[in-house]
Each structure stands twice: as C-alpha cells, then as structure tokens.
C-alpha cells in the first residue's frame, strides 16, 4: 500500500514541479512585450550610448588649434604589454628659447595588437592619450588597423612641459 501511495505521490509531485516551471516560462511568454531584453543593434545606433569609461580605442586628443599634449616621452610605449604603440620622435629647435626639444614625428598605434588594458592611458604623464568609447572598427584589411594618431601638421601644446 505504501508503495502505491508513494507511486501516486511521485506522479503528483512531478506534475506540480513541471507546472511550476511552465508557469515561469509562460509568464515570460505572455509578457514578452514588456520583458524582451534584446536590442536591435544597427538600428539603435543613434540612441546607443556607450559608458564614458568604455574602452574602445586609444586616441590622441587634439584641440581646436590642432595641438596635442604628447611630449614623446614613450611612457606609454614602455607600459604597453603588447608593443601596440610605437613613437617615432624627432628633435626640433624651439624658436623662442633656441633649445632643442623632443617632438613626436609619428605616433603609431597598432590596433590589431591592442588588448585595451588601459595601462598606456594611466601611465601618460600629460594625459595626452585617452580611451574613446567609439567602436565598430572591423575592417577587411589588416593594415587599416595600424593608425597614426597624431594628425598631420599637429603641434605640441605650448603649456605642456
């Protein structure tokens, strides 16, 4: 007799647990309009706002006078674990003081090797480079991923030491 009661108890317990599971999925099915969490990505480009700190790509900030703050000290180059950054620097005579001063010729950035670890940004003494929250950098050609970050004709800002 005990075996029979436990047999039926098992069945009722099983049905009960199965129905509880179905209630959960059923709730989400019937409230799908409210509960759906997926976003439709390319369509929501305009409204999609990345977080400020999102690490998308390393940029060298230029102001409106086409001037940047990079002194070419190579701190970022040393801090980078992957050899992503290469700085080719030059020496130029300062017209005012007449002293020779180090300036950057090319700030080469290999995006394909970058792990976006942010170590270069925190190592920069003049806050010249920063992480930009932009994305969509996929290309068909690997060489597009090697970028020169300083804009042509750009100069170092006067006040940067």
């Amino acid at each position: 007799m005990n075996a029979i009661t436990s047999y039926f108890k098992d069945i009722f317990h099983a049905i009960k647990t199965l129905l509880t599971g179905m209630r959960v999925t059923g709730y989400y099915f019937s409230h799908a309009r409210k509960e759906i969490i997926t976003q439709q990505y390319p369509e929501n480009r305009d409204t999609l706002k990345m977080f400020d700190r999102f690490r998308g790509i390393v940029t060298l900030t230029h102001d409106e006078n086409n001037e940047h703050a990079c002194t070419g000290c190579s701190a970022c180059e040393i801090a980078c674990p992957n050899g992503t950054i290469e700085i080719i620097s030059d020496r130029e005579e300062d017209p005012e003081t007449g002293k020779k001063k180090k300036i950057i010729d090319k700030f080469i950035y290999h995006y394909s090797m970058c792990t976006l670890c942010n170590l270069c940004i925190i190592s920069c003494p003049t806050d010249a480079i920063k992480m930009d929250p932009s994305f969509e950098y996929a290309t068909f050609d690997r060489k597009d991923l090697t970028m020169i970050l300083n804009k042509p004709g750009s100069k170092i800002r006067k006040d940067v030491k």
Binding site: F51, R53, F54, L116, C117, L119, M131
Partner: peptide
C-alpha cells in the same frame, strides 16, 4: 556586465 562596463570600462577583460 553593465556595472563593470560603467566602472571599469570593459565588460569581460576588465583589468
């Protein structure tokens, strides 16, 4: 992941 992204700047490889 959103919390991480906002504070750390990345979702998975936060560093």
């Amino acid at each position: 992941n959103d919390i991480f992204e906002e504070t750390c700047g990345a979702r998975l490889t936060v560093n």
